[in-house]
Design a protein around this nucleic acid. Structure first.
Length: 330
DNA sequence: CCAGACGTTGTT
DNA sequence: GTCTGG
DNA sequence: CCAGACGTTGTT
DNA sequence: GTCTGG
């Protein structure tokens, strides 16, 4: 599941991390709508704003459909029909959306049918593993080109973050007009799936990750890629790294780099070791033991099947597999 | 037809 | 136990 | 997601 | 606004 992220990079660094190649083969930096509504934090919770990618076609009627923009949006989707004057009065949770039922849920089906697909950006997300009533948080993120360790020390040179590969999560957004007037509120939900093998020891759900440029492009391009094609992108993704972090992250007010710092933890598997019951009378059901989380080395993701025609297909032929070969800016 | 919901997570 | 606020 | 509140009257 | 339950 996904109820906390880290997104601490400044606007310009994020824009550079989001450079991409459009269908004309041109390198682009996305424009940022509502730049001033984004506040970087090592500890972002629902109701706060984070950067999301979306097709410019949502805002400009005759934009190139492959053109991406970044917008600051509220985490926790407010359906367009919500009538209370205060968005925070919504009486149900929309920070996550189950992929299995999203086409049946009124709050998600309607925006999905309008093509309101977005890609939520973060340095990574946090997940809490439960054992013996305790909770161990982990930081979870895409594998990096530079060694992961170089990002997490206390005295890290902030410039190393220029090389961070941001996490890209599939989301749905909606637009809400405050009944008493004011600006349109853009808000989003993060789609969840069963967890991948690598994460299954930590938790049984995870956000739907888009782990290639091709997947991001298809999820965003609601003009070229119909829902039934886009839904094929929503599945567990194993291309992931993680490490345990301090419980400092538990309190969302703790906005410090310590939230990312790896910590040594007592092996929960060993901590469960105890004598086995030998008599029939004490043959109670043993509580299930959490397994030792392992850092699994993952292969490159297999490219998604290509189905759509026209510009999209041409673009894919040329750039679809250029994933990770980021062209330099200038 | 009207009334009322509209959502996810986890869990002994 | 359940909801709100961060 | 976790942390922390969960309530009213009247009072200084 | 739209769907489900009665």
């Amino acid at each position: 599941m996904c109820g906390r992220t880290c997104c601490h990079l400044p606007v310009d660094t994020i824009r550079r991390a989001c450079r991409y190649i459009d269908y004309e083969g041109e390198e682009q930096l996305p424009e940022w709508k509502d730049e001033d509504k984004y506040f970087p934090s090592y500890n972002k919770s629902p109701q706060s704003n984070s950067p999301v990618l979306l097709s410019r076609l949502h805002l400009d009627k005759d934009a190139d459909p492959s053109e991406r923009i970044i917008a600051s949006m509220r985490w926790g989707l407010i359906p367009s029909w919500f009538r209370d004057a205060d968005a925070s009065k919504l009486q149900f949770n929309t920070s996550n959306c189950r992929s299995e039922t999203m086409m049946e849920r009124r709050s998600y089906k309607v925006p999905l049918e309008k093509g309101r697909r977005c890609v939520v950006l973060a340095d990574g997300f946090f997940e809490w593993q439960q054992f013996r009533g305790d909770k161990q948080p982990y930081f979870i993120y895409f594998p990096q080109t530079k060694t992961e360790k170089s990002f997490f020390s206390r005295s890290v040179d902030e410039k190393v973050w220029d090389d961070w590969k941001m996490l890209t999560m599939a989301g749905i957004f909606d637009c809400w007009e405050p009944p008493n007037g004011g600006e349109t509120l853009y808000s989003y939900t993060i789609i969840t799936v069963d967890s991948c093998k690598a994460l299954s020891d930590i938790h049984h759900r995870m956000p739907a990750l888009l782990d290639s440029e091709e997947a991001v492009s298809k999820w965003l391009d609601f003009g070229e890629v119909p829902i039934h094609e886009a839904l094929k992108l929503i599945h567990p993704v194993d291309n992931i790294k993680f490490h345990p972090v301090s419980t400092v992250v538990n309190n969302s007010l703790n906005n410090t780099p310590q939230c990312l710092e790896p910590v040594e933890i007592e092996d929960p598997y060993l901590s469960y070791a105890r004598p086995k019951a030998t008599t029939k009378s004490s043959q109670k059901e043993e509580p299930e033991l959490p397994k030792r989380p392992r850092q699994l080395m993952q292969k490159n993701p297999t490219p998604t099947k290509r189905n759509s025609a026209g510009l999209m297909e041409q673009w894919l032929k040329k750039y679809g597999e250029a994933y990770n070969k980021k062209p330099k800016i200038q």
